[in-house]
Write a protein that binds this DNA or RNA. Sequence first.
RNA 1: GCCCCCAUCGUCUAGAGGCCUAGGACGCCACCCUUUCAAGGUGGAGAUCAGGGGUUCGAAUCCCCUUGGGGGCACCA
Length: 495
Amino acid sequence: MTTRVRIAPSPTGPLHIGTARTALYNFLHARNVDGTFILRLEDTDQVRSTVEFEKDILDGLHWLGLEWDEGPEVAGEPARGPHAPYRQMERLPTYAAAAQRLLADDLAYPCYCTLEELEADRRAQEAAKQAPRYVGRCAHLTPDERRAREAEGRRGALRFRVGEGVVAFDDVVRGRVEFDVSNLGGDFVIVRADGSPLYHFTVVVDDAAMEITDVIRGEDHLSNTPKHILLFRALGYDVPQFAHLPLILNPDRTKMSKRKSQTAIDDYIAQGFVKEALVNYLALLGWSTGTEEEILPLDELVKRFDIKEVHKGGAVFDRERLEWMNGQWIRRLSADDLIDRLRPFVEAELVAGRIERVPSDEELRALLPVIQERLPTLSSIGDLAGFLWVGDVDVDPAMLVPKRWDIATAKDAVAAARETIADVGAVSFEADELEPPLRALAEERGWKAGDLFMTIRVAVTGRTATPPLFDTLVALGRDRALARLDRALAVLEGA
RNA sequence: GCCCCCAUCGUCUAGAGGCCUAGGACGCCACCCUUUCAAGGUGGAGAUCAGGGGUUCGAAUCCCCUUGGGGGCACCA
């Protein structure tokens, strides 16, 4: 039998790091065993679900390169796969039929308890320091009693009878796990009073309908698994294999949350992380190849992935390590690819008013040799080279004067450098033609070359940390370099 | 409160009884390279393998207990 796995996000928020990691592990496993990767939207929480979030999630998974084999229709494209629809709100009749079967077999029953009654039960249990559970008030209503309540206009929610006994299963990552049914919290609701089905129910009906063989999900679902198994059995379905992944954690080791960490994939994209780095980093959060190699592309991860080697313990999300990995991947991108990916970030700089014009592809390409290894993220392009794409830069006179110098020396140096650079540029303007005369100038005046270079650097860029000076001067062009030196001199005069 | 899960450097991890006086990576600190910043290279600090009992000739690795941490217990997913 071919392996079928699924990722089943709820469109109640933007694509979360945890969902992306779960999707990735499902994808890696599916591709590793040549199985099928299915996407299903669990949108039964009509209050919180939105089409915007749905689009965000789909776009994010697509951006990461996690293509699904079966999934819902999106953006005019028809649904893929034999089990459509793949959006739960479009599968209501399926759940209704399953609910009807359970009701007919008395495996489920209508519950007329009001929310107030249930809330009161919970409070009483809490006061008595007992575990919250449904007390079973409606578990054994006679047909007459049910009719009486219906006649009062009360609508029953449907509760599933959990029965008693022990539910055990062999989790692929955790091994054998057992739960006593008495600890499940009593009979649980599978269909709301308004007729809409609930998660525990739809997930089982759909996993069965879509013939899911391996349910790979977060550890937060481990305690829910016995409920699901009971439902699979009650409905006469085969129980799939389960694999519960370790949670991704906040620095304080609680489940990663928006409150304490940056969780939206969107934000990582906006901050200039590349998909290769995110995928690579996430893959290694909770699993390792067993070797010391760690920079691995998606296809290589697929080859080496083994769901049985996934760790049991949660892993703290370490942004510093992600950033390092992002740098590793940026350095591995081809010139064309990097230029394409840089483009939106350069444009964002323009929109933000931090630069005044957008460089051409050729300008960016010429810069790549000196900026590629200096970009921790794509978004750092502005900080790194933005001074090239503005008319003038603000220069802090204090930064123009190296520690060993006084203002007079700095003025002298800027003026002399201006002449030297002008002389070089009169013929051509190349990095290796600029360096010798400027070094000679430093030597002649008894200046440390580094001091002279720093003064020039600040004069033409306004900053102390830049790509190599001579390449920077070339990128700026002779005229603009000279103009900025003139301006720096004026700044010093005024200081 | 009840149930379940987990436990190697600050963090991600290697380790499936002797190869471990515990290896790698991120971060940190030095040094090298160097016009700044990076990148790269070299080296260093950093874990009595949570603690305690067993089993064994021998345990980070197996068992038990304790402690600690986490997750779940909705007419949310």
